[in-house]
Every structure is written in structure tokens, then in C-alpha cells.
Computed example of a mutant assay.
Amino acid sequence: MAIEKKFPLPPFNEETAREKVQLAEDAWNSQDPDKVSKAYTVDTEWRNRSQFINGREEVVAFLSDKWNKENDYKLKKELWAFSDNRIAVRFEYEFRNAEGQWFRAYGNENWEFDENGLMRKRYASINDLPIEEKERRL
């Protein structure tokens, strides 16, 4: 069995940390749960708001449900800090719910990677703000 690797690999410098953040943003904006899940270890651990998610299968289920509810989803991530095998990001995303209400979600994520560049831990703190369509930025 081939060893999975997701470049760039830790330890991160500013350039590789920024690249890792952009790759994550691009993957999440694809809204493809299977594609996104491949960036995580098979036993990844997440805290997303008040939910605890463990393993790729739960990641796929979580993201599938998320993107079924969050229409016209668009995300922007920004590097906040990095060291060795960890990256912290700030982010915002916008979406519309089934009733047509727009939201902007703000938050921070702390990421920890294994030696093969797969994310083994993701801790996300997120707040939602209802917005009018004319207030959209993304």
C-alpha cells in the first residue's frame, strides 16, 4: 500500500504554510466532500462548532450534509500563524439557507499535520451572522 502524502509537507515555512492554506480554500470551495476528505488522516479528529467528528468517513458525511444545507457557499481563508507542523487560519464564508437567508460565518481554525502533510487535527470556532444579499463580499 502506497503512503499517502499531501504536499507541501511540514515543517512549514511562510511560503509552504500559505500554499497549504490556499490548497485548503480551493478544496473546500469545490464542495466535493470526497476530495476534501483526502487532505485528512484516516483517523482525523475535528471539533467543528459543537460537533466532534472522527475519521474520514465522518468528514465526508459532515461535509455532504453541510453543503446540502449551505447553498451558494463561498469561502476565503487567511494564514494567521504557523510553526513546524501546525497552521492557524482566520476565515469567512457566505452561504444561503433553504429559506433564502444569507449568512456570513467567521472563525478561526487550528490545524495539526502528520509527517505526510495530512491534517490529523482540525479545531474550528465559528460564528454566523445573518446578512442581506446586498451585503455579500464573496
Rank of each mutant, 00 (worst) to 15 (best):
61 A>S: 12
66 K>Q: 14
126 I>G: 01
66 K>V: 09
108 N>K: 08
115 E>Q: 11
93 Y>C: 09
97 N>S: 07
109 E>L: 03
106 Y>C: 13
85 N>P: 01
116 N>E: 05
111 W>I: 04
119 M>S: 11
112 E>S: 02
85 N>W: 09
117 G>T: 05
102 W>C: 08
86 R>T: 12
92 E>Y: 15
94 E>V: 06
68 N>G: 13
132 E>W: 00
58 E>A: 15
88 A>H: 03
70 E>D: 07
72 D>L: 15
115 E>L: 12
126 I>L: 14
103 F>G: 11
129 L>Y: 06
87 I>H: 09
133 E>L: 04
65 D>V: 09
81 A>G: 09
83 S>F: 14
128 D>Y: 04
61 A>F: 06
97 N>F: 03
112 E>C: 00
106 Y>L: 15
58 E>R: 12
107 G>D: 08
102 W>I: 02
100 G>L: 07
62 F>W: 08
75 L>F: 10
129 L>K: 10
69 K>M: 11
71 N>K: 15
87 I>A: 06
115 E>R: 05
65 D>R: 15
82 F>I: 00
125 S>N: 10
58 E>V: 00
116 N>F: 05
101 Q>L: 05
76 K>S: 09
104 R>Y: 12
77 K>E: 14
89 V>D: 14
75 L>S: 03
105 A>Q: 13
122 R>K: 11
97 N>R: 04
109 E>G: 06
66 K>Y: 10
116 N>V: 01
71 N>L: 15
84 D>M: 06
109 E>P: 06
126 I>C: 10
76 K>M: 01
106 Y>T: 13
130 P>W: 04
89 V>A: 03
123 Y>N: 07
66 K>R: 12
70 E>G: 02
86 R>P: 00
80 W>H: 11
58 E>F: 11
73 Y>S: 10
135 E>V: 00
73 Y>N: 02
70 E>C: 04
135 E>K: 03
132 E>P: 02
100 G>Y: 09
104 R>A: 06
74 K>P: 00
110 N>I: 06
97 N>T: 08
89 V>E: 14
84 D>L: 11
95 F>S: 09
122 R>S: 05
113 F>Y: 13
98 A>H: 08
89 V>H: 08
118 L>D: 02
83 S>D: 15
124 A>S: 07
110 N>M: 13
102 W>H: 11
58 E>D: 13
59 V>E: 08
115 E>S: 13
89 V>K: 03
65 D>Y: 06
116 N>H: 07
118 L>F: 02
110 N>P: 01
125 S>K: 12
110 N>D: 13
121 K>E: 13
112 E>D: 03
67 W>R: 04
78 E>M: 13
97 N>G: 03
111 W>Y: 13
91 F>I: 15
102 W>T: 04
121 K>W: 08
124 A>E: 08
63 L>W: 11
67 W>V: 08
133 E>G: 01
64 S>H: 11
136 R>W: 03
132 E>F: 02
120 R>Y: 05
110 N>C: 03
134 K>Q: 05
68 N>I: 00
